[in-house]
Amino acid sequence: MVALLGRRVIQRIRGLLYAAGFLYEVLRESFLFVRHRQVGYRVLTMQILFTGVEALSVVAVLGLALGVVIIIQGMSLLPQIGQGQLIYTILITVITRELGPILTAFIIIARSGTAIATELGSMVVSHEIEAYVAVGINPISYLVAPRFLGVTASLLILNLYFNVFGLVGSYFVVQLIKPVPFAEYFRGLLSSLQTADILSSLVKSLVFGVIVSAVSTFNGFRVESASTEIPQVVIKAVGQSFMLCIVADAVITLIYYMR
């Protein structure tokens, strides 16, 4: 009984070390990728296209809708307690600092996290990964690094677009319902926006990008031989990504408030 527990713990630790080693490899190869600009350059472009550009419509709609809702709710409620000026702080806190990074991360987990895990898993099953090794191509540098960089870059950029649509786009939509003077709105927004907000938002996106890509690729490679393992690893990838992103979000928010 104790031996079983001990074995489990050792297994767990080994698993974590393995994962840590994997992450290290990924980071190293990504760094080298940027420096060497090998064959994977086209792969990187395609990755950003699929992960970033194709998710833009979802992100835009989400950002717009959220922004509009916040503005309308805020502008109905806040002036009643004489705090109309708080709407800008609320917008910045909700869209820039909190929902921007985490919602775009969720969108990317759902779209690209699943796709990457599935793709890599099926490549393992069909021995394509082995074929890469046989030719001498390091699968981490050729497959994982561009995905890692592509997903992280896409997340960063999508976060920015989320802010564009959430802060700016929603303004134009609200004009149809409850007009606010342009200068007043943007001045209010710019006064509430601190560089720390922007930094926190970008750092979050970066961390989430690393998490999503690393977890998806790691789980994809864990397939061994049967294609029935593929959905299992995808589920694991999604679950782990969600959890790690939320934990990272909490940690970064804490750091932001302790500064």
Binding site: I48, L49, G52, L156, L160, V164, T195, I198
Partner: peptide
């Protein structure tokens, strides 16, 4: 992809300047 990235970066730069 180039346009995608550039617009986002431009927006960020603009915001920083305005702030």
């Amino acid at each position: 992809v180039g346009v995608f990235v550039l617009v986002a970066v431009a927006f960020l730069a603009l915001v920083l300047i305005l702030i």
